[in-house]
């Protein structure tokens, strides 16, 4: 187990290294941020001073070495635009996005697995068909449009829920969270549902496909032949088998939800990382973009590690470390 984790950490370090090179080269190619950063009226002298201050006069590889050097010390540079450390800027926005993503995933799992099981067990029933049709809608409707419709329906017309922002927050571990206050929760519902819709459809389809396959297996019939109650056959024998693919996909999806909740955050004015990324790219704020991407890569690495660990709990045939069986 320990060997497995250490090996995974080493692999992750390589991934992070490769990512930083790619990101750095990519952002270099986009354009020179200096034109965006200084006012058009600035003269040549001011311009040269700004370039020197930001270190943009050095060749690319030197900039990169300087970047790696300070990154190893935990310093990912200072935002060109905001003038504060980029990493701090990203991490400050991180809880809002994490909270939104986790709530969305929770909705997707808590609703998706039972609905998928039901649709899989009774594929020809009316409920089963309705669930599957609904999941196609969830897949195909664009997120931003659904978001706006939700705002129209629940915020504007019915006036039940607020249209945007995080609302009141309460502090836990020194970080502000919306879900700890009633007002924050009401602010959280619409964006979480909006973000969950696609994942929910995915979970439903995965759970349904898994259930249809597993329900026909001999071990399910054997479980029934033992005289077990249906709740145990479905809730243990079937559920534990379908969770394996669901956990894999959800792990990957959690990463992508956190990293790319940009659309939902924009529609609901949710002050998360996605909004920050879009703004930073538009302003060519290199340190922030790089800090964001590195945080995202680390996040994916950690989530994948957790998925692998959960996997081994679910499926005894998978032995971590590849040692003895």
């Amino acid at each position: 187990m320990l060997v497995f984790i250490l090996r995974r950490l080493a692999q992750s370090a390589v991934v992070v290294m490769a990512m930083s090179v790619l990101v750095f080269a990519g952002i270099f190619a986009i354009g020179n941020p200096i034109d965006v950063l200084i006012s058009p009226e600035a003269d040549e002298f001011e311009r040269a001073a700004a370039i020197a201050r930001l270190g943009l006069d050095k060749p690319m590889h030197e900039q990169f070495i300087r970047f790696v050097d300070s990154a190893l010390g935990g310093d990912l540079g200072t935002s060109f635009v905001h003038g504060v450390p980029a990493l701090g800027l990203v991490l400050q926005r991180f809880p809002a996005t994490l909270e939104l993503a986790l709530c969305a995933m929770l909705v997707a799992v808590v609703l998706g697995i039972p609905l998928g099981l039901w649709a899989g067990l009774k594929p020809d029933s009316l409920a089963g068909r309705v669930i599957m049709t609904g999941s196609i809608l969830g897949f195909s409707l664009p997120t931003f449009w659904v978001g706006m419709m939700l705002i129209m329906a629940f915020a504007v017309t019915l006036g039940w829920l607020p249209a945007g922002g995080r609302g009141e927050t309460a502090s836990l571990f020194g970080v502000p969270w919306s879900f700890l206050t009633a007002d924050g929760l009401t602010h959280l519902i619409l964006p979480a549902v909006n973000l969950a819709l696609f994942k929910l459809s995915l979970v439903i389809r995965l759970a349904r496909a898994g259930t249809r396959e597993v329900a026909l297996q001999d071990y399910v019939k054997f479980a029934r032949a033992k005289g077990l109650a249906p709740s145990r056959v479905v809730g243990v024998h079937i559920l534990k088998n379908i969770m394996i693919p669901v956990v894999t996909v959800l792990g990957l999806e959690l990463g992508s939800v956190i990293a790319f909740s940009v659309v939902t955050e924009s529609v609901f004015a949710w002050p998360g990382m996605g909004k920050l990324l879009i703004d930073s790219i538009l302003q060519l704020d290199r340190p922030v973009v790089i800090a964001y991407l590195l945080v995202t890569v680390l996040l994916f690495v950690v989530i994948n590690l957790i998925v692998d660990l959960v996997y081994s709990l679910l499926d005894p045939r998978i032995r971590l470390g590849g040692g003895r069986a």
Partner: peptide
């Protein structure tokens, strides 16, 4: 089922649930 009339299936590779221990599957029975 299982108490008065029990069943044994053809393929032993398929009749036991792969993700549950033998103990779990016997105790539940």
């Amino acid at each position: 089922r299982g108490r008065r009339i029990a069943m044994i299936f053809q393929d032993p590779m398929m009749t036991l649930n792969p993700v549950l221990s033998i103990g779990t599957q016997m105790v539940e029975a």
